[in-house]
Design a binder for these strands. Structure first.
Lengths: 331, 331
DNA sequence: TTGAAAGCGGTACCAA
DNA sequence: TTGGTACCGCTTTCAA
């Protein structure tokens, strides 16, 4: 029994007997159980998870490393994760790496030192070396959103190729004869959307622009890329932008030049920001169901933790992208 | 010395001597230090933080409970926190309560069970009972963004009264003769902005609308509130909305009714969403410097953890709101 | 069904 | 400067 004489926060000796009650162990008499329960309330007792971790080897927490928490996609995923994990009494450790590979490595190391039961990573790395370190430590990890060619790992994300295809095809269906693409940085999502764009073009001459002054926000990069497109001799009449912020920048450039959206140039983005309907021209975009991805990722992580399988076949989950049409392509 | 024969991940016996090296204890010979360092690298050794926590009583982590991670304000704060904490090798546990007081209490309990060294809370509670439980456990906590009247606690937030004052006064300076206010739910931020609005009015008849169908998003609540305002006999020519999403909804209602912004009705929001410049009419808003708030909150939390002061005078930090003028009030 | 005892991986203290 | 030892609070095992 807890010793009444001590302060709650100071060392309280709790015999094994009482501990069984905490964990609903079957070998306990009803009367004893009740007595212990009451005492727990009285003392406001809460088991020390660190001590439990030490012996079980589990921390009941998962880590989530993102390039930028401000990005609504990651924020929403985190929200989904948080909800799903809370239901299972798992904790969520988050680190925002600011798109810096160094910060990311440091964050991952910290997660490992904290012995999280699993790590989810939307990576800003250019190579896969640091994932090696995770698997060496036998910690299950899941790549999220961004994958790496030739690196077999558990992955959960959106079918970016399909997203690019759908968006581009949509522009063509709306009568665009010359669809350009403002592409993103060298990560798998941008590559996938580019590939989908090319497939949808089906042989027609592609027009691809890239603005990689990395210091700028995506929106201003989209702006600059669009300015280039407007200056070219054969102006496009439709543009698929690799994400919504770049689409916002592009729209800004178009409207500023006196052209109309979608009459002169139609625009489609990707990501379906929740503010997309309120933009200067409501933006057609590809929805990535980030909340669902968060929940899905949580389920996958929990399954990996439970199953304890050391390194079975890496699982890959691709969610279906869905087009949401708005005024920017409605013509 | 670490015993070479064992697997890294399996129990490795580490004598006290070697541990001193890890913690840069002074009582160590150079040669020994070097030898141990090398061996650490070889074994890829990482101290078990759970074990350390058990004896030190510290977890080197802080918890952050927010009503909604998707809200850019909280996302950005979290980002600021994450960066500042990473520099000090502290971990960040995040829980998104979805504005549900029950979820929030559960999240706080979990944080306490995990023995975080401090808790930051942007609370969705209507009363302060659950904070009581935190201080009973002697865990320092900081209220963030939202405070509670009559509840003395460490607090860090924006001077909401001033924000409301500045925004309203700005509308009046731009020639609005009848400034209305679309107010938010019964939390301190909304109350403060309302108070500032009233002070700026300086006796002029206030027009206050509220739409509290809680199930809807803030933007659609703003829309509904604006519809009411448009139907009234004396239509306002300026509206201060308690946050940016509600301002977006209000703008939508105005434009849909065929009126112009800002010529017929000027709009000011609060929060300065990073997408504010790209809205249908770029939105004048009050900036809350959420990133700085995150960093500031991290500093405050670390200071409280270090200082170990049990319950000195609660500290209250109020950041200055700053108006960012855009087209929605430029006339 | 109950309670005692060992040990998880660290830290802190003390004697050599 | 070094290494041995007693815990931290919990889980697990085993004998009563």
């Amino acid at each position: 029994m807890f010793s009444q004489s001590r302060e709650f926060s100071s060392p309280v000796h709790i015999p094994a007997q009482s501990q069984k009650v905490l964990r609903n162990h079957p070998d306990i008499g009803d009367e004893t159980r009740e007595r212990v329960r009451r005492r727990m309330k009285e003392l406001n007792y809460q088991p020390n998870l660190a001590a439990r971790s030490l012996v079980t080897g589990k921390t009941y927490s998962v880590g989530f490393v993102v390039p930028d928490l401000m990005h609504p996609f990651f924020a929403e995923m985190a929200k989904g994760l948080s909800g799903a994990l809370r239901e299972h009494s798992y904790g969520l450790l988050i680190a925002s790496s600011q798109e810096s590979p160094d910060n990311e490595v440091q964050a991952i190391e910290q997660m490992l030192a904290r012995r999280v039961d699993a790590v989810l990573i939307a990576s800003a790395q250019s190579d896969t070396a640091c994932f090696q370190r995770i698997s060496e430590r036998n910690v299950p990890y899941i790549l999220v959103d961004r994958s790496f060619l030739g690196h077999a790992a558990n992955f959960i994300g959106v079918d970016d190729e399909k997203a690019g295809f759908i968006a581009t095809r949509h522009l063509m269906d709306r009568g665009c004869r010359r669809v350009a693409h403002i592409r993103g940085p060298a990560v798998s999502t941008a590559e996938g959307r580019l590939a989908g764009y090319l497939r949808a073009l089906d042989g027609v001459d592609p027009v691809i622009v890239r603005e990689d002054k990395h210091e700028d926000a995506a929106s201003s990069r989209g702006f600059q890329a669009m300015v280039k497109l407007l200056q070219s001799d054969r102006r496009p009449d439709g543009v698929f932008c690799f994400n919504d912020p770049s689409a916002m920048g592009a729209m800004h450039a178009i409207l500023e030049s006196g052209l109309r959206i979608p009459e002169d140039i139609a625009i489609a983005g990707c990501g379906n920001l929740n503010y997309a309907p309120f933009l200067r021209v409501p933006l057609t975009s590809i929805d990535q169901s980030s909340l669902a991805m968060g929940e899905r990722a949580a389920r996958m992580a929990l399954a990996m933790i439970e199953s304890k399988k050391p390194s079975g076949e890496p699982e890959s989950v691709l969610l279906e992208p869905a087009l949401v049409e708005r005024a920017s392509t409605r013509r």
